[in-house]
């Protein structure tokens, strides 16, 4: 299905929903550090980043609404857990602080390559939102990359924890680049170059930073499934928590 201006609407909806769901779930995971992070600065940082990611989620849901007429609140709070199309990576529990830092860094670099690609897209709404989000993301990357550089080889314990976190997170992170349904149409219409291309650009960015931090990239295969709604049970717990307040009084006006 395409609109008259050559934009493949259905594939675009798939893309926007995946982007929104990724931001929503990671935002929620980051918010789980509010009040619990090991340093007050990190408590503030992850609370801020959570708020940013939820805002970005709303921006993508709003673009999706323009195509599908479905309301952002309904998309965020009324779907079954098995209906979300986030990658599995963003659904795993926050783990220890090392895992959170490694996940955030790998996600922030993916945001850089995604948003840079989208900010050249011929589809104006996605281009405008991407250009705006990219400016905010500069702060996320500066923060997470700084922590990778400091913690990767600071002490024996920090190195051990960061390496263990990377061993878990890296194959999961590759799941961010699982091909979307209808992706060929998005590529041929120039919306973006496809997930395989994004993954290669992402690897080009993360490899030198991880190596400098003395961290070894594990060789495990990508943890795919999320884009096809084949999730791990952690998402069910996350969604129960995410929707718990909303479900007390659906549609309530604040």
């Amino acid at each position: 299905m395409s609109t008259s201006d050559g934009i493949p609407t259905q594939a675009l909806e798939t893309l926007l929903l995946a982007l929104a769901d990724d931001e929503l779930m990671l935002g929620h995971r980051n918010a789980e550090w509010t009040g619990y992070a090991p340093l007050i600065e990190e408590d503030i940082a992850f609370s801020n980043i959570a708020q940013d990611e939820l805002g970005h989620s709303l921006a993508w849901f709003t673009l999706y609404q323009q195509l599908s007429n479905k309301k952002p609140d309904s998309l965020a709070f009324e779907r079954e857990w098995s209906d979300y199309t986030c990658c599995r990576f963003v659904t795993y529990p926050k783990g220890d602080f090392a895992y959170t830092v490694v996940r955030q860094y790998l996600f922030d670099e993916a945001e850089q390559v995604r948003l840079r690609a989208f900010s050249l897209s011929p589809y104006e709404p996605i281009r405008d939102v991407s250009a705006k989000i990219l400016r905010e993301e500069a702060y996320h990357l500066m923060h997470s990359q700084g922590l990778i550089e400091r913690l990767g080889d600071a002490t024996e314990e920090s190195h051990r924890r960061m390496q263990a976190a990377l061993n878990d997170a890296f194959p999961q992170a590759l799941g961010m680049f699982e091909a979307l349904e209808g992706e060929d149409e998005l590529i041929s219409s120039g919306i973006f170059g496809g997930n395989a291309k994004l993954r290669d650009e992402w690897l080009g960015r993360v490899q030198p930073v991880l190596e400098n931090a003395t961290l070894l990239i594990p060789g495990a295969p990508a943890d795919f499934g999320g884009r096809k709604r084949n999730h791990v049970e952690y998402l069910q717990q996350l969604v129960d928590d995410l929707q718990s307040v909303y479900k007390i009084a659906p549609g309530a006006k604040w």
Binding site: I40, E41, I44, A45, S47, N48, I49, Q51, D52, G55, Y139, M142, H143, G146
Partner: peptide, 9 residues
């Protein structure tokens, strides 16, 4: 710089 993030975004 003391904290990269603050009381508001």
């Amino acid at each position: 710089l003391d904290s990269e993030f603050g009381a508001t975004l």
